[in-house]
């Protein structure tokens, strides 16, 4: 089964085509807020390079976040429309899970952190398991200092990865047991998503297009303001 992976949770726009033979092609670009402009041409290019017709795609795997709201919606709306029109199933994969996958060959605690803007991070913790990683916490949102305190309190050797960790590197500098992974792995990769989705596709963990929505972790400001006014 051929899988199309779509990745728009961070500044990076990516897509990849692959299947049981591995990743056939992947396209990534990270030039500013141009998710909507770049994604569909990227998909066309990735298919051409893999010598695959879009109609041969049997599964659409999409990053459901957490991440940039508008970027996520571009990716999820595109993925849902493709799955709907090609009449194929979907698999949603979390951005934080995707980040952990390429750095799985480590006994350390793996922590992924994506920039949530407004001085906050989306983050989660992982352990290596045979064939991949297992998330051992919820997907969370908090300040870099919140995360630094948690890592310090855990007392564990930590591998920290993601554009959020890079952006707030100063918060983690003083932590002796924490190693920050370099920038090459700081965005979720579309290739990792195709690999992860392939494993889940073999287990037939499919989802319907209308069941897939972005994971926001943050409510719209208007709702927050509404619920806090008059002591509600």
């Amino acid at each position: 089964m051929l899988i199309l992976g779509i990745e728009t949770a961070t500044m990076q726009v990516g897509c990849a085509v692959g299947g049981h033979e591995g990743v056939l092609s992947s396209v990534h670009s990270a030039k500013g807020k141009r998710h909507a402009e770049q994604l569909v041409p990227s998909i066309q290019f990735a298919c051409e390079q893999a010598r695959v017709e879009l109609a041969e795609i049997g599964l659409v795997a999409v990053d459901v976040g957490p991440g940039l709201f508008t970027g996520l919606r571009v990716g999820v709306a595109t993925a849902k429309a493709l799955a709907f029109s090609l009449k194929v199933p979907m698999i949603g994969v979390s951005s934080l899970d995707l980040l952990a996958f390429p750095v799985r060959f480590s006994n350390r605690l793996i922590v992924t952190a994506i920039d949530a803007r407004r001085g906050e991070l989306y983050y989660a913790c992982y352990r290596q398991v045979p064939g991949g990683v297992q998330r051992i916490t919820d997907l969370q949102i908090g300040s870099p200092d919140d995360l630094a305190s948690e890592l310090l309190a855990s007392g564990e050797e930590v591998l920290l990865v993601g554009d959020g960790a890079q952006r707030h590197a100063e918060s983690f500098e003083g932590l002796a047991k924490v190693e920050l992974v370099d920038t090459g792995n700081s965005h979720p990769s579309a290739a990792a998503r195709v690999e992860l989705a392939h494993a889940r596709a073999l287990r037939e963990e499919f989802e319907r297009p209308d069941a897939i929505e972005p994971v926001y972790l943050r409510r719209p400001d208007a709702e927050i303001n509404w619920s806090t006014r008059d002591g509600r």
Partner: peptide, 13 residues
């Protein structure tokens, strides 16, 4: 952007 993204994907497919 939601509508534009979905429409372009449909046109592509």
């Amino acid at each position: 952007l939601v509508g534009v993204s979905a429409a372009k994907a449909l046109a592509l497919a």
